[in-house]
Design a protein around this nucleic acid. Structure first.
Lengths: 342, 342
DNA sequence: GAATCGCCTCAAACCGCTTTGGATGGTTCA
DNA sequence: TGAACCATCCAAAGCGGTTTGAGGCGATTC
């Protein structure tokens, strides 16, 4: 059933039927009702491809997921971020199209998306320092929202981020208040913007209390279980091992836990651990009582909001770029305690 | 730059330019070369929307990710599966469109996808027993491949699955060979097809050795850390606790580990653990020596293959349904050992 | 009674490509 | 030498909608 058939069946022209269904005012309300009823009865759904060609809009947004060719790692937060964004898109009848591309093909992918016209805008994932994608997207004129920020970009652009610096600063202060002074950092890769900011927060908090950050206590790697394990194991082997750790994610925190326990120590007593918790649906940090003390911010909610920002931008491209900074909560769980007496 | 402009610029008709670019034989090779050169020079990319309307093909496949409204859990294997599938799609110039929908809206989503014509086929995720989606998709005539199988569906359909029964059977046998007789099962939700099959494999192996499966040792829940923890904790509190566990995923295995260790026991000595390892990129089971003994099958590879099957089906809809059963490897890690002497 | 005005409706152009059904001119072959 | 045949190219008709510009028509105004 297409528009023309429906129109003939109703004894109307396609024009009128189209207008009736799309809520244009120049059609009699009685007629409109009749048309809508018929459309429902005949189960008429306008062909998306035709709408897209006619209107020039793609009614779709792109998410380009870069795969680091070296590590081949898909960041697990994508799943939840996308679930959140997807909710927004469904509500607005937008499609979400995902491109999984080796990071060296990213530029070509964005250009293709624009020139072939299959999306109206994109979400930029995993921004790095001085991320070239921002200039690129502005150049080719594709609306975009960055999930995170890109230190080093001068011109304003739209982004949505968690206050990573503040979160790790507060977490560090919390540990300091508990009497810890040897605090280790199990950070993500430090060319990623969020990791840089977290490190800054950590360093700032230490410095503010007169503690000189010790490079031997700062690790930076993929946020995997194994990497968390290795970093922790290395730190625990030091002459002056840390009594507390800041971990970049739930998963690296689990690696840290394994290292602590396989060293015969107990988490929360011998070694305190604070993680950053993205509140992933399949990776809940305990139930009533959180397993880990954590800085928490829902990445799913971030997905929802970022998608809304993007749709807004697409609807009003002339608007100024939007920014939104979310604060993480500091939630107390079972993995932290006072520093052990020396 | 569109086709018509390019044609005028070349002094050719749109027809010829289109044919030249699409490799049709009725065009002089010299002309073709000239056209291709001009297209490159002017950075011409055909408008996807127009192609789609003209050809009637969407050049896109859909992945409908159901969100269980009750738990709101996004299965973490999606990320890797989709990364794998995405590779296949990119190579074939297909778009991947993701719909994240509450499971009660699933049927409407599939129908909409078909009648609005935005995809040429779909991948069905997370099949359950007697899954209604199979009949639905056949009815509406949308090509599909199921990731997994749906016990109870009579008519043939295309699927790609891991031999879950066999994997868990072998894992159980391996534990039996090590002298374990009290073996616990920390399974996924048993309305999911894969969970049913795993349980069958486990039960079969026990029965074959004359051991009656003990309901007190069989748990079924979401595959989360917390669920793994709880199930394990409950079993360890039994008068006759298990000396070995089969866990449905790396994540539930981590919960199990936490429970074992917080009971003051040691994994691999007091309690052996075997997990199923989907070989997720961010959740590697150790490096040289695996952390967990595991049945392993790469879900990313599964994504690649399933996508290939689907594209084949779309290209040749008349072909008979395809099936493919992947075998999981049993890899030995540090989490298993002989049964402790009673 | 003619002119004006709103309200509805329609025919036709258009979006940018593919594809069908010729047209053209040069070759080949009987 | 004329017919059949290629090889090459083009005009035009879609694909299924949206949107512009133009009426038709009954009611109102002067």
């Amino acid at each position: 059933m297409n528009l023309k058939e429906l129109a003939t069946k109703l004894g109307l022209s396609p024009t009128t039927v189209s207008r009736a269904l799309n809520g244009y005012p120049e059609v009699n309300e009685a007629t409109r009702a009749r048309v809508i009823a018929a459309a429902k009865r005949h189960n008429y759904h306008p062909n998306t491809r035709a709408i897209r060609l006619a209107t020039g809009r793609a009614m779709a947004v792109g998410h380009v997921i870069p795969i680091a060719t070296r590590h081949e790692i898909v960041n697990p937060v994508f799943a939840d971020f996308i679930a959140g964004a997807g909710e927004t898109y469904s509500r607005n009848d937008y499609d979400m199209i995902l491109s999984v591309v080796p990071d060296e093909d990213e530029e070509a992918t964005y250009r293709g998306l624009k020139s072939k016209g299959n999306v109206d805008g994109v979400i930029v994932h995993a921004p790095r320092m001085n991320d070239p994608r921002i200039a690129l997207l502005r150049e080719i004129g594709l609306p975009f929202v960055v999930h995170g920020r890109a230190t080093g970009s001068s011109e304003p652009y739209s982004w949505l981020d968690v206050n990573n610096r503040r979160a790790f600063q507060r977490a560090t202060e919390f540990l300091l208040d508990l009497g810890h002074t040897r605090i280790g950092l199990v950070n993500g890769l430090e060319f990623m913007d969020f990791a840089i900011r977290r490190r800054t927060g950590y360093v700032d908090a230490l410095t503010a209390r007169g503690i000189t950050p010790d490079p031997a206590l700062m690790f930076s790697d993929e946020m995997t279980e194994v990497a968390g394990f290795r970093a922790t194991q290395a730190m625990l082997a030091l002459p002056q091992p840390p009594t507390a750790l800041l971990c970049a994610s739930m998963i690296s925190g689990m690696g840290a836990r394994r290292a602590v326990e396989s060293a015969g120590l107990t988490v929360g007593r011998d070694v305190s651990i604070i993680i950053h918790d993205d509140d992933l649906s399949y990776m809940k940090n305990g139930e009533d009582v959180p397993i880990f003390t954590a800085t928490r911010s829902s990445v799913r909610e971030a997905g929802r909001l970022a998608a809304e920002m993007l749709l807004g931008l697409i609807a009003h491209p002339e608007d100024a770029p939007q920014q939104r900074l979310l604060e993480a909560e500091l939630i107390i769980g079972q993995s932290t305690g006072p520093a052990p007496k020396a």
